[in-house]
């Protein structure tokens, strides 16, 4: 879309400290935590909930906490048990990321997806209690779908964002195989320096909403 008549509202989104809850763990979790810590204000908080964490995981968390500008903590509770999940007030966090629940067990994708859906159903139940009490919930729920066939199930479980990792990786592979320079574009988009793709509220761009706009892309 191109610039035109009318001034751009002089508005900015104020950055705030963020609280992020990670339910479960996978080998990707340290990358997620480091990447997230790069984007948020120093002093933001990342809590990882894993039941009976092995010593190696506790050590990894300690390292991440020491290395990053965010505070990284471990909560020894089971996200698959609704009461334990509820006791940490997941909806007081900005984002909740759902990862595999039993990373050490080498569960298959079906099992991991169904556990993620189980956690999502607990979260939805907890959210319902809050909304019925008249509270607004702004927490974003994010999960990874391993089997793209499960996409519809997950989206019905009330998740805001999901990543279909196999499909996404396949599409990126296909593009890079045709045009290798695409990799530089993706590298730039996926790191903290340079530009990223954001979904920003329309009120940053338009003074009087609602409006009917014309695309000029």
């Amino acid at each position: 879309m191109t610039p035109s008549t009318g001034a751009i509202p002089d508005k900015r989104i104020r950055l705030k400290f963020k609280r992020q809850l990670i339910l479960g763990w996978s080998y990707k979790a340290p990358i997620i935590i480091q990447g997230y810590a790069d984007y948020v204000l120093d002093g933001s908080q990342i809590d990882v909930m894993v039941k009976d964490p092995p010593p190696q995981l506790m050590e990894t968390i300690r390292k991440l906490d020491a290395e990053s500008t965010a505070t990284v903590r471990l909560i020894d509770k089971d996200p698959l048990i609704c009461d334990e999940l509820g006791s940490t007030s997941p909806f007081l966090y900005n984002n909740v990321i759902i990862l595999p629940q039993k990373p050490s067990m080498n569960s298959g994708p079906e099992r991991i997806d169904s556990e993620a859906i189980g956690v999502l159903l607990h979260l939805r139940k907890l959210q319902k209690v809050l909304t019925e009490a008249g509270k607004t919930v702004e927490t974003k729920l994010i999960t990874e779908v391993l089997e793209s066939l499960n996409q519809e199930l997950v989206s019905h479980a009330g998740v805001n964002d999901f990543i279909i990792s196999d499909r996404m990786v396949s599409m990126i592979f296909a593009q890079i195989s045709e045009e290798k320079d695409m990799q530089r574009v993706y590298d730039n988009l996926f790191q903290e320096e340079g530009s990223e793709i954001y979904v920003k509220p329309a009120w940053l761009y338009f003074e009087n909403l609602p409006i009917t706009a014309v695309s000029a892309t």
């Binding site: 879309m1 979904v199 920003k200 509220p201 329309a202 009120w203 940053l204 761009y205 338009f206 909403l209 609602p210 409006i211 009917t212 706009a213 014309v214 695309s215």
Partner: peptide
């Protein structure tokens, strides 16, 4: 043409 409201995003 699209109609954008306060809740929509770019």
């Amino acid at each position: 043409e699209i109609t954008l409201t306060e809740q929509d995003s770019l």
